[in-house]
Amino acid sequence: MTDLATNAELETSASDIRVVKMRGFGIGERSTVPISLATAAVILLAWWAASEARLVPHLFLPTPVEVFNAAVSFYQDGYANASMWEHVSASLARILTAAVIAFTLGVPVGLFMGLSRWAKGVFDTPIEFYWPLPPLAYLPLMIIWLGIGEASKITLLTMAMFAPIAIAAQAGVRSVSLERVNAALSLGATRFQLMRDVVLPSALPEILTGTRIALGVGWSTLVAAELIAATQGIGHFVMSASQFLATDYVFVGIGVIAVCAFAFSFGMRLLERWLVPWKGQS
């Protein structure tokens, strides 16, 4: 029973234990949030100092207090014959409509491209041609074809968001392991059951990643499109304010866009955690 004796000798009180782990590489596991918050505080402070000290002309850089007041007045009284909520909801309606259309078209097209040589060959040509183009390059064409109203903006946004979703869905199908497919087939799956129960769920993580990228592309396209042609929307608000040299309102507009885009990205992350909790586990 020498083993037991050795164990007793080795026993130590909990406070003496030095917990160790493998030496790491890179940023490690400790949270970066405090550092980020401190950085934000420093930037705010620098902004406040620079504007109060009039280091740059006031026209270019309003003080934080002025921007805050502009935000309050935008919230209470609206701007350019529309309330803040009308501006924001006009933008949200555009991007959400386009996102829904791009998703319902992009996912099946992408899955189809991953499964069929013909679909891949046919859809590759237009997607590879237009996807690298900046959407603003073909916005004038959209306006000539579809007019200055909602149709041209939603079409532009849909096109910008369609490609990343379709490409992601296609990559998702390709990432399905042959073993998983064979396992399902040897359990008697039909083509349809294989798609529904194996291929689609396997591709889901990639589809969600593609959708997140698409929403990012969507926001930048949306704001740019509203700068050029709109009477409402948060991009229009920024443009209009800049024409009156109302720099404080421009700052507010940028802030609102940032909040919206961040909320979307955060929402997508929640959706991912809820829909694909197995991601990275396998």
Partner: peptide, 27 residues
């Protein structure tokens, strides 16, 4: 492939989005 020949793979090909019971019941 067909359901009258069951296959057990070297690396299990279980579906991570289904529970253990759902995986067993897949066929």
């Amino acid at each position: 492939p067909g359901a009258e020949r069951g296959v057990v793979f070297q690396k299990d090909a279980l579906l991570p989005w289904k529970t253990v019971a759902e995986n067993v019941a897949l066929g």
